[in-house]
Design a protein around this nucleic acid. Structure first.
Lengths: 340, 340
DNA sequence: CTGTTAGCGCCTTCAC
DNA sequence: GTGAAGGCGCTAACAG
């Protein structure tokens, strides 16, 4: 049942070349021929085999989006922006999950690069360190890195200033009168460079205010609501609990709210909360969460445009774009009304 | 820089055929030859061109997942399950968004079917009516429908009993002593068959209890937290507000909680809430939301397995699988403690 | 066990 | 303006 170009050519009494010209909107075809071919095309219901076309052209019109997990709100919202813009540009998006695992990030990137399936890769990396990143400099396929950390890797990169964002978020809590400010983030080892950057910003803000850091106020938990909730609950059980918390992800923040609620503490009156990743869930949490983060449509558009530009053959030096971030104030960080 | 099979063959002094045999693990290759080819393979860093292979084999190892929006928690969690299982089966997933729009659903399905890009399509349809669905019976590519509604379409279908689920959810609120039960769902026109099914179940439960339906207690809003919140706020402003609400989606439920909170009503003491779509966000809402829905891993696994079976050539009649659903009780529907 | 020969369906350089 | 070949890189018949 597969109608090929050849079939159409035979039906219309022309050569395959001419049919191809019509299909691809080539200009120099006589109106008469064009009409005849057009008719055959429709009569036979011709559908080009995109696979064959891609093999021939050396381009597929597909890009891969590599993210840790699609069901993490930050990434699903980002993916939405990417898919939407790509679709408008006639590009389709293949999504794969790395789990934030260094080895999977490498393997999937390598697969994407070598398979010729895709014209480019958008990689939201987590596990990769600078060394691994620069190791993959010679990939055949263009790669744009999406990530918190700037790295000298020879690849384009889109990100934002995480240290400054964390500093601003912390400062915001200080501005509302809190003085015992903690943070909730990922495991602070090499595997999570993002948390390290944010931790640095958090500490910088405290330093600048002359407040001594209290190491006990940094709560470390994997990026899930449940584990964050448990870790924060542990913190709250201590005698000396904070009156403000900077959360490094929406998951951490939601877990934190749950723990605070469970401990009978009021937000924002007893504890002020600020979080990274301004996702819908944050806007509708009780109370709505003050959030800092980039505009995801910005990130997606910038990255996608850079990638497609590369796919079109651009060879300018690796670019490092920082998109702006915004601190959106909501009630979770309003100044406390009374002494709790 | 593209090393082809031919290059390797020349390097190893064998025919392309033999190299292909080695690459694909064909058994009848002499150990000596195999070793030699293996060495050349590695020395030249051969990477098969998957595009060419797919063209030849007539199979790509890619499937398309068509959903309304990837950033809706229910779909992102479902997509995660699909991607994870697919990846374990060596299949990659192309994700596209239909916006729940009938025309886009059709267009994307048609594109997927005709392009030969993919071995199959998982379509979570919303806008399509039975007529459109059966119209696409003759697609060249296997299609498995994911959706609330059973339809005689000639395609495989995975779903669950929405009427019964809505009935159970409503009954659960009745069981906790509420008598003035409303519902929050999508626009109840033809475009949203899902809401109609759930509405039917809701009404059936009220009927069975001999309670007269109050049309004013059905709140209709698009599937966003914000619009649901606004619609529910309007309802609460009326003199005769309900003491229980069945929400038809997680977005509706989260918006509902926000509206109730804004109106100073306590959940569950003043109003009990139950919702569809048991997503993470519901488990960590304040208060945690009682939810009904299928196990998404079940849905994904069933659908994917059916699809791949079809891709392997199975021609059994169209199957209609109903996966079980579970009502998970949480505090949003606990019996009220006092008269509010 | 392995070499030779054809294509998969399309686009594109070369002629006319 | 259009026809006739050739080949993108790979695998599947068919020998041998």
């Amino acid at each position: 049942v597969a109608v090929t170009l050849r079939d159409v050519a035979a039906h219309a009494g022309v050569s395959p070349r001419t049919v191809s010209n019509v299909v691809n909107g080539y200009r120099y075809v006589s109106p008469a021929t064009r009409a005849r071919v057009q008719a055959s095309l429709e009569e036979l219901r011709y559908q080009p085999n995109l696979l064959a076309r891609s093999l021939r052209r050396g381009r597929t019109g597909i890009i891969t989006l590599l993210i840790p997990r699609i069901d993490v709100p930050y990434f699903s919202e980002l993916a939405h922006e990417v898919v939407e813009r790509a679709s408008r540009l006639g590009v389709t998006v293949l999504i794969d999950e790395t789990g934030g695992l260094r080895d999977r990030e490498l393997a999937l990137l390598d697969l994407a690069a070598s398979s010729r399936w895709v014209d480019g890769v958008l990689l939201s990396f987590v596990g990769l360190d600078d060394k691994a990143l620069s190791g993959l400099a010679g990939t055949r396929v263009p790669v744009v890195l999406l990530g918190e950390r700037t790295a000298r890797t020879g690849h384009d990169h889109v990100g934002y200033d995480n240290v400054a964002a964390a500093r601003d978020a912390t400062q915001h809590l200080l501005d509302t009168g809190r003085r015992r400010i903690g943070a909730v983030g990922g495991p602070a080892d090499r595997a999570d460079a993002t948390s390290e950057l944010r931790l640095a910003g958090y500490r910088a803000a405290l330093d600048a205010s002359g407040l001594p850091p209290n190491p006990g106020w940094y709560v470390s938990a994997p990026y899930t609501r449940e584990q964050a909730a448990r870790a924060v609950a542990d913190l709250l059980a201590t005698a000396d609990a904070p009156d403000g918390l900077v959360c490094f992800s929406a998951e951490h923040a939601v877990g934190t709210l749950s723990a605070l609620h469970g401990a009978g503490l009021r937000v924002p009156d007893d504890v002020g909360v600020v979080t990274f990743d301004d996702v819908e869930e944050c806007r509708f949490a009780t109370p709505p969460l003050t959030s800092v983060g980039p505009n995801k449509a910005d990130v997606a558009a910038t990255a996608l445009d850079m990638l497609l530009e590369r796919a079109d053959g651009s060879t300018v030096g690796p670019r490092d774009v920082r998109v702006p971030y915004v601190l959106q104030e909501r009630s979770s960080s309003a100044p406390p009304r009374d002494g709790g």
